[in-house]
Write a protein that binds this DNA or RNA. Structure first.
Lengths: 116, 116
DNA sequence: CCGGATCCTAAGGGATACTG
DNA sequence: CAGTATCCCTTAGGATCCGG
């Protein structure tokens, strides 16, 4: 996938960033404000620690968010979107608007042939 | 990802539809108007026929676009977005706006340790 | 509490060859 | 021209164990 050379355009750049479903959903959660690792896990039912860590690291490297670790017992790590990350809000809003208005048949893989 | 249960929200619904990078880019091309199979291949440098067919079929099943085949010699097949598909324009526009304004460091993989 | 390490599966995607 | 069939690779993501 990544070995494939995508066309160079704004859309493709976004797609390189949000390469999986969880990546996008993590951004969505952080748009609500800075959150801890555990808070993100609870806010995203079904996500594994592995995936969450992987996506957060990737975002951090790309300057989408900042990672702040407090050397306490117990440890506390807070993730917060950067200005660049917060600028993703319009994209998420547009996605949400479409998904909320679309009929179920648009996102269920069922090969249902509508009665006509 | 198939067994992965994503949260139920508008964003997740969009992500189920555009499960790969090419899927989104195909929609972007069709927003310019109805296009033939060959036209899409040329407009999307690097895409394979396999992927193009696969994504187009998926979109057709979900009612995002219509497939019209003309029984001619040579064959001609035209793909056109439905009303539901055209409603994806705001999403693509938002992605493009972000990608166009983002610095290169945001979408180029920042390799921590580059062995080689 | 926050992950890193390891192993595993599933699905997108490419290459090639071939067909209606 | 517009696919289809087959094989293979890559990567997102899950499960489990273990370290700081």
């Amino acid at each position: 996938m990544s070995s494939t050379e995508l066309p160079e355009c704004g859309v493709a750049r976004f797609l390189m960033l949000c390469s999986g479903p969880w990546a996008t959903l993590i951004v969505r959660e952080l748009l609500h404000g800075p959150q801890r690792f555990g808070e993100l896990r609870e806010a995203l039912p079904g996500v594994s620690a592995h995936t969450l860590t992987s996506r957060l690291r990737s975002f951090e490297e790309r300057g989408i968010l900042t990672r702040t670790a407090y050397a306490e017992i117990p440890p506390r790590v807070v993730y917060e979107l950067t200005e660049l990350g917060r600028e993703l809000r319009p994209v998420l809003d547009a996605m949400n608007a479409w998904g909320s208005a679309a009929p179920a048949s648009a996102f269920t893989a069922a090969k249902v042939t509508a009665p006509r």
